[in-house]
């Protein structure tokens, strides 16, 4: 067995997700990502199942593993009870641990995602929160949500939420003691180490690309090169 394959087998999602793939391609047929991106979960699972170390290394540095939307439609349809989506999660986890995620445009997006989501959890107690939902980053939320964000207290009061208040209810302030427990969980389970790892590799990549880390965050959040989608020609 190869080293990278061995590392994958330690991930519980890999243990759950790869039993015996018969390469039928049902996962690719049902996959919402495969319809739009140049993405084929059948090939990914095949590469991993063959224990092709070179192929696995290529995957860890590739755009490919970041195309999945983790909808898990493949889990329902696989005739052999595999979960290609779970295999992809294990590949992403290993790519992150080894720092290979900065080798691809879609992998580099892990930096803005980590900053936003773990920041929200540790500061506000939830993954998504109107206090950090910036309209210029989300024009698709429409003029109605621009209005909501401009009148947050009044609108959320009208909706029966507890925005800005202690106690129970939607959007309540999470007590500091509970945020401290979340931080302790992150410290104990590798969450904090993961954030630091993503920051370290991203800072290195930003320097290589001649950007400050804030320029890198913005660029990785917004920039999409041509060539990811099935109906595009490859290019910059």
């Amino acid at each position: 067995m190869g080293k990278l394959y061995d590392e994958l087998t330690e991930d519980y999602r890999f243990k759950e997700g790869l039993k015996t793939c018969i390469n039928c391609g049902t996962c690719t047929a049902i996959c919402p990502a495969a319809e739009f991106y140049r993405y084929d979960p059948r090939k990914i699972v095949d590469t991993v199942q063959r224990r092709d170390e070179e192929g696995i290394l290529e995957l860890l540095k590739s755009e490919t593993i970041w195309y999945c939307g983790e909808c898990m439609s493949c889990v329902t349809r696989c005739p052999r009870g595999n979960g290609p989506g779970l295999v992809v999660m294990a590949l992403r986890n290993l790519s992150t641990k080894l720092g290979y995620f900065t080798e691809s445009e879609k992998g580099r997006q892990l930096y803005p995602l980590t900053k936003a989501l773990t920041g929200n959890i540790l500061n506000l107690g939830y993954c998504v929160h109107p206090d950090t939902f910036v309209f210029r980053d989300h024009p698709e939320s429409g003029p109605v949500f621009e209005w909501v964000l401009e009148h947050k207290q009044d609108v959320y009061d009208r909706m029966g939420a507890a925005y800005g208040r202690q106690g129970e209810g939607a959007l309540r302030i999470i007590p500091q003691e509970d945020l401290d427990e979340l931080k302790a969980i992150f410290d104990e389970t590798g969450g904090t180490e993961r954030i630091e790892l993503v920051e370290k590799f991203s800072e290195k990549k930003a320097a290589e690309m001649g950007m400050t880390i804030e320029e890198y965050r913005k660029y990785t959040f917004e920039h999409c090169s041509r060539g990811h989608f099935n109906n595009e020609e490859a290019g910059i």
């Binding site: 989501l117 959890i121 107690g125 939830y126 003691e177 992150f186 590798g190 969450g191 954030i195």
Partner: peptide, 19 residues
């Protein structure tokens, strides 16, 4: 005292499974 389940962060691959 309850909070997020962290499921979105998990499915955006930003936290380990054990977290």
């Amino acid at each position: 005292h309850h909070t997020t389940c962290a499921g979105i962060a998990y499915h955006c691959d930003t936290i380990p499974q054990e977290t």
